[in-house]
Design a protein around this nucleic acid. Structure first.
Length: 151
DNA sequence: GCCAACGTTGGC
DNA sequence: GCCAACGTTGGC
């Protein structure tokens, strides 16, 4: 089992939205970056995923979700009305993948980015690499335990 | 295959 | 709103 982190703008989709969703499940679609997509494709049912709130007032890790459906072609790429539409993608040769994620828990306190940056042992963690823009990334067991030690 | 131009991300 | 860093595009 692998562990992961996904970034999301909470105004678009927050950990509270997971808690409130039907079956507490939300399709994770709209990823349009190849490196992130390749990680999505590796996600297995049951994998745990940290939910990171970006571009907002309180930046940091807000909760945990779980993969309940592994990668399948992202329907939004075929939808001309979707902002995620990709005219170069066809159902025969889909370019983008989605997974379904389900709510596990909200952290009792948001784990802020500046706290994460100050934690020892997270060298090389993509989230805190300068200029990093990766929106889906693996989290090692060690990183996971450091991050959640007090959460 | 190179690389300049462009659009986007995301913290501040 | 700013802007550095990055990924993608497209001409050559």
């Amino acid at each position: 089992m692998t562990r992961w982190l996904v970034k999301t703008e909470p105004s678009e989709c927050s950990i509270a939205d997971f808690a409130a969703a039907d079956n507490q499940t939300i399709p994770w679609d709209g990823v349009r970056n190849y490196q992130a997509r390749n990680f999505l494709a590796q996600m297995q049912e049951g994998d745990e995923v940290l939910v990171y709130h970006s571009s907002c007032k309180r930046i940091g890790i807000a909760g945990i979700v779980r993969v309940v459906r592994s990668a399948y072609p992202d329907p939004s790429q075929f939808d001309p009305d979707s902002p995620y539409h990709d005219s170069k993608s066809t159902p025969e040769k889909p370019r983008w993948q989605a997974v379904d994620l389900a709510y596990v828990r909200t952290l009792p306190h948001l784990l802020p980015l500046d706290t994460i940056k100050a934690m020892p042992g997270l060298d090389g963690f993509p989230l805190i690499r300068r200029g990093n823009r990766l929106s889906v990334m693996p989290v090692t067991d060690e990183q996971w335990h450091i991050l959640l030690a007090n959460a």
